[in-house]
Design a protein around this nucleic acid. Structure first.
Length: 765
DNA sequence: TACCTGCATGAAATA
DNA sequence: ATTTCATGCAGGTAA
């Protein structure tokens, strides 16, 4: 929230508009700081704000060690106490003195709602101004990150149980992760041990259960000489009061937001080291921000934040806004970065014209880039893009699959663009965002699932933290569905899959067979018959098809045991493992002891030809009838290149093994072609192939003719211009131009003998 | 011919 | 059913 033009004290009980001096209060979720009058600000500075203004508010608890009253559930005091693992709270002073829970954040916005705590407006946000700061407040390279997320929990009771377990696990760790599973036992208890009914009622009234986490700095790593009263500085107040933290001293809880399909909130032992897990930070509050899809939640590690702050000027606040995994289009040369609509409308200035606005965005090195922020109308909606991002993308050496992170830098509300490189391009497809460069690049090592560059970002959320592979296949399958078939997207696969796919597409096709359990339906598309199968193709054993002298098709399969080749019926589908004993079609050769049917030399000749159809096509053309799946384009191209229809028809052969749907009897456009050397297409042939090729040929020739005529017209125009300027004698061409009534210029050559003849006409430009 | 621009399309995600 | 968004594509422009 930006400072109002006419300031008003944000203490709800004060609200004064005039003060000798305005003071800065607590950091606000949307950035900036609460504005307080001098009086209230002083109380805030002196850490007695709650005592002064919230004394009659519910939520007071006592420090378990010093009995000092602490106001809980309040944005002002949220840094001043800490929830103890064994229940109760401790003021930050005692925490430090005792050295316990030393690595915890100052305080999360705890789920321990005190007695009588009734959030305003039925939301978790207690009062105006008491918003949860989900941004990272950074002072001189230090970060306090308090985050609260309202995230759906699965309705599955077992999942809720898992959460509970996870919470138990977490509670024993040094992290502060508070969650609200579907268990009444986890509701805050009043001092008498009963569940806070008001809180529970509120919880139950919520459309979605809430889950909350916080990230804070490591107080315990600070020296005990730090004045506890100065902790307020950590939240972004006067820098002079900020205890001096060094980078790396911060603690970071591990939190993986629950997936839709399951929850795995990971606990990471926090032994004084900086957690490097990536946490999806819910977006800052604001217009439309609640609608931001989790996939766009910034998942910056503290290290990344530190990295940014290390490069940016001190005394600034960086608030991660959203991130986006670059698509091929985004990272391509076109220089347009498609912005998620919700993000664009939430964090970028409102634009009313399609042309948009130039917008300045600073990178983490402080370099400022100017992009055009604009939109296109799209389906009664808008599609927001940043134009001119290519230099920036290139500067950051980003490519598709990498992530750009947009943040806001306060004061000044400057937009900052950061990035996170995908670590492994092909094995980073299971949800979590790619690990970042540098310090954050080992997030996967820290236990999170590896990143998903190029993934549909949804997976980033869905799989985040899900270590149980049970649900992966479905998810991955879904992802693959989206990515396969797009030439620019990275195919989602494991490394092992990649190894398996070190075959050409044609080779892969050779392994595909129609599902034996399904029969094709024939459909006609543009006069071509296509076989359609309900079942997907299956992998079968690679076989070789040959054409018998009689014209019938044969299939050869190799025994996995003795490696002999056996002649098979053309229409059988061999399983991936096949031996002679499975040769039920030839009783004489159903054993590995049976000799080869033909000499090995002949087999080699046949198979060699079969494996090199192109060579075969050029040289032989008779021995093996294996079809190139060249397609009509190739045929048409061949036609344009001068081959006659008959000639390329001659290269076309009979049924093929390369198309999974081609089987004997298949009447598709490929299979209907006669085998090589037999049934050469006649010039008057009207088969589908010939008709299509003729059509393509005609189109291509027309284009070619048009190009030639355009070029000729252009040349003529130049000649005419030269002739008009310099007279016919000086032009390269003897001729005159006459503009007729239709605006056409008729160019008439002037032959050397002086006679005139109409040559051509073209429109006047 | 390559590139740019604006819009259209359709698969996937979401409500 | 609706929305989102990655990408295709056609027309225009520059090299």
């Amino acid at each position: 929230m930006s400072a109002p033009s006419s300031k008003i004290c944000m203490n709800g009980l004060c609200g004064t508009k005039s003060t000798p001096q305005w003071k800065r209060g607590w950091p606000m979720k949307a950035g900036g700081f609460a504005t307080l009058c001098y009086s209230c600000g002083t109380a805030y500075d002196h850490v007695n704000y709650c005592e002064r203004f919230h004394l009659n508010e519910p939520g007071w608890r006592e420090c378990k060690y010093c009995d000092k009253p602490i106001h809980c559930g309040c944005v002002v005091s949220k840094y001043l106490h800490e929830c103890l693992d064994l229940g109760g709270i401790s003021c930050i002073k005692c925490i430090r003195a005792r050295g316990t829970q030393a690595l915890k954040p100052l305080q999360s916005y705890t789920n321990e709602r005190p007695n009588g705590f009734v959030p305003f407006s039925g939301t978790w946000q207690p009062v105006i101004g008491n918003r949860i700061n989900n941004g990272a407040t950074i002072d001189k390279g230090k970060i306090t990150h308090l985050t609260e997320a309202h995230q759906p929990l699965p309705s599955n009771p077992s999942i809720g149980h898992q959460i509970k377990q996870d919470e138990n696990r977490l509670s024993s760790s040094k992290e502060v992760v508070t969650i609200f599973p579907n268990a009444s036992s986890l509701f805050p208890k009043s001092d008498n041990g009963r569940t806070d009914l008001g809180f529970k009622a509120l919880y139950e009234s919520m459309p979605q259960p809430a889950i909350k986490y916080s990230i804070g700095n490591a107080l315990g790593t600070t020296t005990s000489s730090v004045n506890p009263n100065s902790v307020g500085g950590v939240d972004g107040r006067e820098p002079a009061k900020v205890p001096s933290f060094k980078q790396g001293q911060r603690s970071r809880l591990t939190f993986s937001k629950p997936s839709k399909s399951g929850v795995n909130i990971k606990s990471q032992s926090n032994k004084g080291v900086v957690s490097e897990n990536r946490v999806a930070r819910p977006p800052a509050e604001g217009k439309g921000r609640s609608q931001l899809l989790p996939r766009y939640w910034p998942k910056m590690t503290d290290e990344e934040l530190l990295q940014i702050t290390g490069d940016l000027k001190s005394n600034c606040t960086i608030t991660p806004l959203f991130e986006k995994i670059l698509s091929a289009s985004d990272a391509g040369r076109i220089g347009r970065l498609v912005l998620p609509k919700a993000c664009a409308e939430a964090y970028f200035p409102a634009i009313h014209q399609s042309e948009g606005l130039p917008i300045r965005i600073q990178d983490i090195k402080g370099k400022e880039w100017t992009f055009q922020f604009r939109f296109w109308p799209n389906n009664n909606s808008r599609m927001y893009v940043l134009e001119g991002v290519t230099p920036c993308i290139q500067n950051m050496q980003l490519q598709a699959g990498d992530t750009v992170i947009f943040s806001r830098l306060d004061p000044g509300e400057k937009l900052v663009i950061g990035c996170r490189k995908a670590t492994v391009s092909i094995d980073t497809q299971e949800g979590e965002a790619p690990a970042a460069n540098g310090v954050a690049s080992d997030a996967a090592v820290a236990g999170e699932t590896s990143a998903g560059n190029g993934n549909p970002p949804t997976k980033t959320v869905e799989n985040e933290g899900v270590t149980n592979g049970d649900q992966k296949p479905l998810i991955q399958e879904k992802k693959k569905t989206r990515n396969i078939g797009s030439k620019n997207k990275r195919l989602l696969m494991h490394n092992e899959d990649a190894m398996e796919l070190k075959v050409t597409w044609e080779e892969a096709h050779e392994l595909l067979r129609p599902s034996p359990t399904s029969n094709p339906t024939i459909s006609m598309i543009e006069n071509c018959e296509f076989e359609e199968y309900d079942e997907p193709p299956v992998f079968g054993k690679k076989t070789i098809f040959t054409m018998h002298a009689s014209g019938s098709q044969e299939q050869w399969g190799q025994c996995d045991s003795c490696s002999k080749w056996r002649r098979l019926p053309a229409d059988v589908l061999l399983p991936s493992k096949w031996t002679c004993s499975d040769n039920v079609w030839d009783k004489e050769r159903c054993s590995c002891s049976a000799p080869d049917e033909i000499s090995i030399k002949d087999l080699e000749r046949i198979f060699k030809s079969a494996k090199d159809p192109k060579k075969r096509k050029l040289a032989d053309g008779k021995a093996v009838e294996e079809q190139e799946p060249s397609g009509l384009d190739a045929l048409a191209t061949a036609a344009v290149l001068g081959e006659s229809i008959g000639e390329f028809a001659e290269t076309s052969t009979g049924a093929t093994t390369k198309h999974p749907r081609h089987r004997p009897g298949c009447t598709c456009i490929v299979c209907i072609q006669p085998p090589s050397g037999k049934g050469k297409h006649k010039p008057n042939c009207f088969c589908n192939v010939c008709l299509t090729v003729k059509r393509r040929f005609k189109t291509l020739m027309l284009r070619k003719k048009k190009r030639l005529s355009d070029k000729e017209a252009e040349d003529t125009q130049k000649a005419l211009a030269a002739a008009l300027n310099n007279g016919p004698a000086s032009g390269s061409r003897n001729g005159i131009g006459i503009i007729d009534q239709t605006g056409m210029v008729e160019v008439e050559d002037l032959p050397q003998d002086g006679r005139m003849c109409l040559q051509e006409s073209y429109p006047v430009r």
